[in-house]
């Protein structure tokens, strides 16, 4: 996998408060990377630096190529915009140099996918929080970015918009987009994340799976997926007549359950099991 960007020894402080300490990260092409951490841990600052919006105090950011298309969804998308979603997205598209005909198609498709088409003629400052967030997401993906950065993108989104975002991210990943995102609680993203990092007190650490973690045995039915062995969260799978048994670590069980359901399968049972069994 090609490297898209490299952040080397990034340090940042606001006034006297140091937010990031020597943070380094290699961002590879076609990956979904999650940055998790508590409030105030430095996640958003790190994302803004990765997007090139904010400058680090020291450290280097190396991009694989010049003028990389970067999409960024801020934690709080501006709510006082005086344009309609349609007008605003047209301006964003034109500023990005997207030809008018393509832009028109893309905007109408994305507005429909996020069910914003019926609101497309209302001003953004009159929309609900969730709909404003959808505009924020569309402006970031409109230009089909090579690097997409999402800071708490689920905030305010309803379930169908969350599913839409998930499917768009999967599509973008197929088209070689790398996604860097943060989220707070266990979410639907867990199923598509390739790598997870934690930021604690401004320091970055890769998630480690320990053998002591419990396991779950998920019994599924009506679920046929030849790629199941490639699901990295599935530690072991076994076919028994019309059922498929999946052994997964407890922490990944929710995302596997969702993935099974999304693939059209049903869950017969979920049981705790011991790693030595």
């Amino acid at each position: 996998m090609k490297q898209l960007a490299e952040l080397k020894n990034i340090n940042k402080k606001y006034g006297k408060k140091k937010v990031l300490y020597d943070v380094s990260l290699n961002i590879k092409e076609k990956q979904v990377i999650a940055i998790l951490g508590e409030n105030g841990s430095g996640k958003s600052t790190f994302l803004r630096i990765a997007a090139g919006i904010e400058r680090p105090d020291s450290g280097k950011i190396l991009y694989a190529f010049k003028n990389m298309r970067t999409g960024y969804v801020p934690e709080r998308f501006p709510k006082y915009l005086r344009f309609t979603p349609d007008e605003y997205l047209h301006y964003i598209g034109k500023i990005n140099g997207i030809p008018e005909a393509i832009l028109e198609q893309r905007i109408s498709l994305l507005l429909r996918r996020f069910q914003l088409d019926k609101w497309s003629n209302r001003r953004i400052n009159e929309l609900s929080k969730g709909n404003i967030q959808k505009v924020g997401i569309i402006q970031a993906i409109l230009q089909q970015p090579e690097l997409l950065i999402l800071d708490e993108p689920l905030s305010g989104l309803d379930i169908s918009a969350q599913q839409e975002l998930l499917s768009i991210i999967s599509e973008l990943k197929e088209q070689k987009t790398t996604v860097l995102l943060t989220y707070h609680e266990a979410s639907i993203f867990e199923g598509i994340v390739d790598q997870t990092y934690y930021i604690r007190d401004g320091r970055l650490a890769e998630e480690m799976l320990t053998e002591k973690q419990g396991m779950k045995l998920i019994e599924t039915k009506g679920f046929i997926d030849s790629d199941v062995e490639e699901w990295k969260e599935v530690l072991y799978s076994e076919k028994r007549e019309d059922r498929l048994l999946l052994y997964v670590s407890s922490k990944n069980s929710n995302q596997i359950l969702m993935r099974v359901l999304k693939s059209g399968g049903s869950i017969e049972s979920v049981n705790s099991t011991d790693v030595n069994n």
Binding site: R48, A51, G52, I53, E54, T70, Y72, P74, R76, F77, P78, Y80, L81, I92, I95, N96, Q139, Q143
Partner: peptide, 11 residues
């Protein structure tokens, strides 16, 4: 707003 300014600069 500052966030809108950052987004515009990014675009």
């Amino acid at each position: 707003s500052p966030v809108q300014r950052q987004l515009m600069i990014l675009h």
